[in-house]
Design a protein around this nucleic acid. Structure first.
Lengths: 112, 112
DNA sequence: CAGGAATATTCCTGTAAAGGAATATTAAAA
DNA sequence: TTTTAATATTCCTTTACAGGAATATTCCTG
């Protein structure tokens, strides 16, 4: 997984921007308004999201219409899939591991 | 989605810890060794991960065996699913939106 | 109980990043 | 061409956080 994507999403306002854009693309001004942000901060956050590949802008004269890009979401999904064993709770190899640890010390003595 | 989870995963070392733990639970010392971290830094990162609910420790006398918790991964998956329209690239409502923008201005004059 | 191993915590410092305010840029409109 | 709207950028300040080093804590073992 890409730490840049994660850190872009780590900021609450940016996460909210992404949630907003889930509905449909929006201009900077609309994003700022809906999220009660000042325009410059909105632009800055959008820049970070953009550099992380999470959003892209379509230029429409004066305005930029921002929308989500699918790639990071696909990557995130791929990454998550590699954890399927864990989050489906089929993950109980702890006992095995404890035994392995015991194994290293065995040869000395065995209490219960 | 929980921004706390995201920001916990935003730090590269912590992301690596999670990737390590995907295989199986590990002690602090082992994590530190494999990731070339000093023990205190490993402990600190594990604390952050722990407070985000991403890992939990099982106490084994002197040592703590850290393992992943399934919940954040499930949440992440749920969150991601709400973006399915986007990351499956079925997301092309931009045209609609542009028309909506045009609509607001229509009534004054219409150039192409 | 003394010593040592594994881990956590604290204190310090440097740095990155977020918000505020002001300003630059670009394109349309008058 | 001046004005205005939309957006981006810069500068400044404050704050959060990561790493280093030292130390505290806990538990085992002799």
């Amino acid at each position: 997984m890409n730490a840049k994507v994660m850190s872009a999403l780590a900021e609450p306002n940016r996460l909210q921007i992404v949630e907003l854009l889930r509905e449909h693309p929006l201009t900077v001004g609309e994003i700022a308004e809906r999220l009660q942000l000042r325009q410059p901060q909105a632009s800055k956050h959008l820049r970070v999201l953009s550099e992380a590949g999470i959003v892209e802008a379509q230029v429409d004269a004066n305005r930029r219409i921002y929308r989500l890009r699918p790639e990071p979401f696909q990557e995130l999904d791929d990454w998550l899939m590699s954890y399927r064993d864990i989050w489906e709770e089929r993950f109980d190899r702890l006992d095995d591991y404890l035994q392995k640890l015991q194994g290293k010390e065995t040869g000395k003595e065995q209490q219960d």
